[in-house]
Amino acid sequence: MKKILSGNLFFTLILIALLALVPYIAPPFYVYLTLTSLAYIPVVIGFNILFGYTGLLSFGHGLFLALGMYTTAFLMRNYTMENLEVLILASALSAFIVGLGVGYICVKYTRIYFALLTLAFGMVFYTLLIKFTPITGGDEGLRITFKPLLLGLDFRYLPHLDFLFQPYYYYVLGIVIILTVLAYIIVSSHFGLSLKAIKENSEKAEALGINIKRFRLYSFVISAIYTSIGGALLAHITSHVTPIFSYWTTSGEIVFMTLLGGFTNFFGPIIGVFVYTLLRDFIMSTIIYWRILFGAALLLIIIFVPGGISEGLIRIYKHFKGA
């Protein structure tokens, strides 16, 4: 374990320490943004297990984000379920079931057809959320009106923001660290290498005895579970879940964050989440035409640095090391 992380261990520890300090040193607004970013980390890690490691571009991952959020909101409202651990497990379970079903169909195809099919499923889920008002609240979505128990502890006496910025923040940080380490272990495992092989050359992988459809399905389900857990964490931050999270623009955002940070590097998408969340907010509050900037940024990344920020940093590092 130590050996695996040793290369990145130092930076990882510094990053975790910084993240742990954020609620004490940063203004509330930035604490809020950091917390939102943390919740998005499992989302992009999940997306990238499918895209970066298995070579399948999902343009419908908003489905699983929304699934986690709605599972959480639904259970809290209708069954007053209050244990966050239970809510997270329930979101993971619903993603497991839906991911298995949707994935079973989607992994029959690859490349553009896979992207189109996932997009279609995301859109179907979006319309279901809008239509089944009794369960989903329709266009309005669902509001979460009370705070969950964290490890059985009741923090309801705290004002909303104090709850979010203290106990909930550290809870999310803890979950995200666990999930990130677990994902790192998975992609460095025998299974992870086999996924990369499928991405690189699926015909060869099949000739070597790897059941490529089965493995793509495993990857799909793991990806769905991660994204859904991210949704479960996000739901308490927004306190309001709406169908927009399943719309294709949200799926597009997930893709964008991952590409921005860099899909070729395990930590790339995590960088992408922070940069995107902070930048979007900064840009959206200063200029109303933020889409132009994001569109242009997307084009520049694709054309010049397909590996995103992480690739850019590595290039700069190598440049200085070489010089």
Binding site: K3, S189, H190, L193, S194
Partner: peptide, 25 residues
């Protein structure tokens, strides 16, 4: 090296090992 490892992992039936680092096998 990794090209060969993919083949060996598959032939030894280890490709479903989710949690063990292949580099330490």
């Amino acid at each position: 090296l990794d090209n060969l490892k993919v083949a060996l992992i598959s032939s030894l039936g280890k490709s479903k090992n989710f949690l063990k680092s292949y580099q330490q096998d």
